[in-house]
Computed example of a mutant assay.
Amino acid sequence: MQIRNSQATQPPPWMSWVLFAAAGYNLVWGAWVVLFPEHFFTLVGMEPPRHPAIWQCVGMIVGVYGIGYAIAATNPLRHWPIVLVGLLGKILGPIGYVDGALIRGELSPAFGWTIPTNDLIWWVPFGLILWAAYRDRPLKTPEAEAVPT
């Protein structure tokens, strides 16, 4: 009988460090956008948004992700769904940027300055955490599923 239980497996410490770093980054970035919604645009030479509350909502969402990453850091293999949702956002964000800025021209290319630190640097570590969680999933064998008679 071969059953693996992610509750018993201790993940490597780097996984928690990465997730705590992502949590801190997202909380700081989200607070910056909520408190100073025009600052990023000034830094990259873009016109500030006409409706900064929409940009502040983005900051709030990013900050909430930070809370999720902090929770996931306590047990990365158990809380892999949080990491999965985060990785999906970090993949879909750049896709949206390419579509909006580079293909349709609706977004300034300067907005791309957010992509490396908000998204790209997290792809590999989040992917490795998810791979480890997948490998650590419980395996059921015919012997484990057999009903005692």
Rank of each mutant, 00 (worst) to 15 (best):
Ala31Leu: 12
Thr117Val: 15
Ile61Asn: 00
Arg78Cys: 03
Glu47Thr: 15
Trp29Tyr: 04
Val28Cys: 13
Leu102Gly: 05
Thr42Lys: 10
Ile121His: 04
Pro94Glu: 09
Asn26Trp: 00
Gln10Ser: 14
Leu19Thr: 10
Trp14Asp: 07
Phe20Tyr: 11
Phe36Gly: 10
Pro125Trp: 04
Phe40Asn: 06
Val44Tyr: 07
Thr9Lys: 11
Trp32Pro: 02
Phe36Ser: 15
His39Asn: 13
Ala8Pro: 00
Pro52Trp: 13
Phe126Arg: 01
Ser6Met: 11
Leu35Asn: 10
Tyr97Leu: 11
Ala23Val: 10
Pro109Met: 13
Met46Asp: 04
Ile82Gly: 02
Ile71Asn: 06
Phe126Gln: 01
Ala8Glu: 14
Asn75Leu: 02
Leu107Gln: 01
Phe126Gly: 01
Val33Glu: 02
Val44Phe: 09
Ala101Cys: 09
Ser16Val: 04
Phe111His: 07
Cys57Trp: 11
Met15Lys: 00
His39Arg: 15
Val58Asp: 00
Leu43Ser: 09
Pro94Asp: 14
Thr114Pro: 00
Pro52Phe: 15
Gly66Val: 08
Val34Ala: 09
Phe41Met: 06
Trp122Phe: 13
His51Ala: 13
Val33Lys: 01
Asp119Trp: 05
Trp122Thr: 06
Gly89Tyr: 05
Val98Gly: 07
Gly30Gln: 00
Leu88His: 05
Asn5Asp: 15
Pro76Phe: 05
Leu92His: 06
Pro13Gln: 10
Glu106Phe: 07
Gly63Phe: 08
Thr117Ala: 08
Ile61Gln: 02
Asn75Ser: 15
Thr74Ala: 12
